[in-house]
Amino acid sequence: MFGYLQPKREDLKIRDYRLYKSVYCGLCKQMKKDYGLAATLTLSYDCTMLAMVYASLNKEECIVRQGRCTFNPLKKCMFCRSKEKAFHFAGAVSVIMAYYKLSDTIDDSGWGKRLLARWGKIGLLSGMKKASAAYPAIRERVCRMYQDQQKAEQKDDGIDTAAEPTAALLSDLCTMLSNDDGQKRILGVFGYFLGRLIYIKDAADDIQKDIKNGNYNPFRDRYIENSDDFRQYCTEAINLTYSQLVLAYDLIELTTFQSIIDNIIYTADRMPIKKHKEKYAEYIVKPSVKFPK
């Protein structure tokens, strides 16, 4: 997972934003408790969302309480804690994904990165063991995904095949979130398109880097430097996937955190594909046209 699933903070209400922050910090604290200090370094926005969806689907009650931050003990933060399994689950997913991501890095990177990844893996090992003892299914699934990814890259058969392993992995992970059969089916589709969206976006963002380093990228054949056509193509591919994601998302029955998760999903497409870092020194506020009802 790549940190794509974060809310647009400008669109959140302040109270939702504070709640979101408390979930983020709460997940960090829970991960420290369950999987060790090194595991907290793997914390990501994606897993925060996963924790929220889990809690929301299973109608878990959450407590928000003030406490002190692990990394900055002078600071007081709000921490959200679930009475049941939500944060435990999300933490396990985060640790296991990070561990296998590091294994992947060791396989195909330069020696500097490889060395760092080795150290990281040693640090994560104990947390990883605890997580896979609690959820053996997740570990197996993530393991299989990296094998599938290699096969798909060898096959080199367009964007659909390349995105399939990530999409299938998220599909299975999302299916684990609920116990209700009807919801499970919807969550499977939802996860599929979520994974697909993340994969395509990541591929479109990394294209320049991948071509420079000679890595695999599904958009490789279509890429033309600084071309609007290429950007257009990527945007269209993302739009199409995103529209299917919204269709599935609309059918999911959430109970808590709904406004935050709505925000994350409904603005997931608005994150532009990287062109260059744009900083807005000034911007225009256009008057909106209101049509009479």
Binding site: G3, Q6, K8, R9, E10, D11, K21, Y24, C25, C69, F71, N72, K75, C77, V246, D262, N263, I265, Y266, T267, R270, M271, P272, E278, K279, Y280, Y283, I284, V285, K286, P287, S288
Partner: peptide, 24 residues
């Protein structure tokens, strides 16, 4: 789907780097 009626360009700006230093 959500609030798509945002007119100002600033909505596209990432606040990612701000958030990365732990909300301080």
């Amino acid at each position: 789907a959500g609030t798509s009626d945002c007119n100002s360009e600033v909505c596209r700006e990432d606040f990612w780097c701000l958030e990365a230093c732990c909300c301080c």
